[in-house]
Every structure is written in C-alpha cells, then in structure tokens.
C-alpha cells in the first residue's frame, strides 16, 4: 500500500516546495512510489486524510497556523520540518524580540488587522521527527531522506560542520582572510556551496545543536576586527531563534 505523503507550507517563500519540484529527473519516480495526498503548490486535489509522512515548510507566525500545524501533527505518523523557516524560524525571525510584530504592523499597516506573533519554528509547538536544514533545502538531502523513510530506516543525520565539506573541495579557508564565515558553526549538507564560490557562509543551515563553539567564534571574529554587534546581526539572519549569541558570550 503506497505511503501517503503531504507537502505543506506556512509562512515562507515556498522555496523548499519549489526545490522538491526541481528534482526534475527523480520527481516522477518518487511520486510513483507514494500517494501524494496534498501538495498545495502543485496539486489542486486537497484531501484531508491521515498522512504517513508530512513534509512541512515555513515558520509559524499566526494563531491559525499554530492550530493548523497541531492538526497536521495529529494526522501524521512522521512529521519532517523542511527548510530554515520550519527548523529555525527563517529570516522573518529577524523581527522577533526587537520590535513585536504587532508594533511593526501598527507602525506600518496602520492598524492591527490580524493577530500575529513572533516567527517560530515548528518544534516550538509540536514534536518534530526529522529535520532538513537550509534556505532552501538541498534537493539531494530531500531525495536521500525520502528514500530512507520509504525504506523504513532512520535517515542519516549530518552532525559535522560545513568545514569538512569545504576542505573536501580543497577550498581556501575564508576565516584565514579575516572574514566572518559561519561555516564552523553550521550544519553540513550543502557541500560548502558559498565558500566554494569565494563567499562567506551565512549559516543558512542553522547552528550544530550543542556542538557549535559560539564563544570561541565571537573571539575569533573580534580579533578579525568585527564588532560583536555585527557578528550578532549576521548570526541572527538564519538563527534568530537560537539563544542570543551575545548572552552565550557572558
């Protein structure tokens, strides 16, 4: 019996749903093995059935989304949070804390039309079984995960920094040029895409839980002549919901 799969999204740019559609060569083969119950961006058939696996993209910014997420959790055996929004809150989480979304709405929309809250990852409200990091996710990683899940195995988890993949590509280390590269703090899986193009890693795959050495990183970046404030600003682009990096320093 084909497993029932749902691909759903909340607040975000739908880039992760698009990346799944970008698996041009493998897409049809996967869809042959599963029963696509709902894929809002690509299919008008929206059935509200029980799901074996729900891939959920986007962060939670409203009460309705929170209730909808809890509904999805109840009806899904496995829930996979895909993309930085779903796993860490996305770039929109930059507004968390600094100015509450209500203030911003009043200041900008001139009134409070709908109830909004800080942008939070899915794990803030429901139990998440597996996670795919990145903004957007890596096609290969989604392919690898869905194959493991369809076979009934626990998916492979990358527990090492981007630096390993960067060295495997024989790149020159950007930190040696005194530029802020968040590679050592960030979960691998992207094949060090940005450093391979000569650009600093922005940490779009989020911090390696419980392993990343934030205090040392701040020290190194300050030696490179970058103020702690700027380090925090760059760090918060993709990890705003991670405990405040400056508190970590004290």
């Amino acid at each position: 019996m084909k497993p029932k799969i749902g691909i759903l999204g909340f607040t975000g740019c739908a880039g992760c749903q698009l990346m799944i559609l970008n698996l041009e060569d493998e897409l049809l083969d996967i869809f042959k093995r599963i029963k696509l119950v709902s894929f809002q961006m690509a299919s008008s058939e929206m059935k509200d059935e029980k799901l074996d696996i729900a891939f959920v993209e986007g962060s939670i910014t409203t009460e309705e989304q929170k209730k909808e997420l809890e509904k999805i959790r109840k009806k899904s055996k496995i829930l996979v949070a895909i993309g930085n929004c779903a796993t860490l809150g996305g770039v929109q989480a930059l507004s968390n804390g600094i100015k509450s979304s209500r203030e911003m709405m009043k200041e900008v929309y001139g009134g409070e039309f709908w109830r909004l809250m800080d942008s939070k990852p899915l794990s803030e409200f429901v139990e998440v079984d597996f996670e795919l990091f990145g903004c957007p996710i890596e096609k290969q990683e989604f392919l690898e995960m869905i194959r493991f899940l369809l076979r009934g195995f626990i998916p492979l988890k990358r527990d090492y920094p981007v630096c390993l993949e960067c060295k495997l590509k024989d790149n020159e280390c950007i930190l040696l040029e005194k530029r802020i590269c968040l590679g050592p703090l960030t979960v691998a899986g992207c094949g060090a895409r940005c450093p391979s193009l000569g650009l600093e890693c922005l940490g779009c795959r989020g911090v390696i839980e419980g392993e990343a050495r934030l205090e040392s990183a701040i020290k190194i970046f300050e030696d490179a002549g970058v103020s702690a404030e700027d380090v925090k600003k760059i760090f918060r682009i993709f990890s705003a919901n991670y405990p405040d990096i400056l508190e970590v320093k004290s």
Binding site: F148, P161, C163, L164, K167, P184, L185, R213, A217, I220
Partner: peptide, 25 residues
Amino acid sequence: ERCLNCGNCTLVCPTCQCFEVYDEL
C-alpha cells in the same frame, strides 16, 4: 579555547587515517 571544532587540522594531515562509513540508497 579558540578551537571551533571545525576539523581542519585533521583533514589536512597527511598521516590521519580515521574514516566514517555510511550507506546511500
């Protein structure tokens, strides 16, 4: 204290022999 757990020192070492084994479907 300054170490970032990035692994560079071992990945460039000519005598390092450690390896990881994993499967792909």
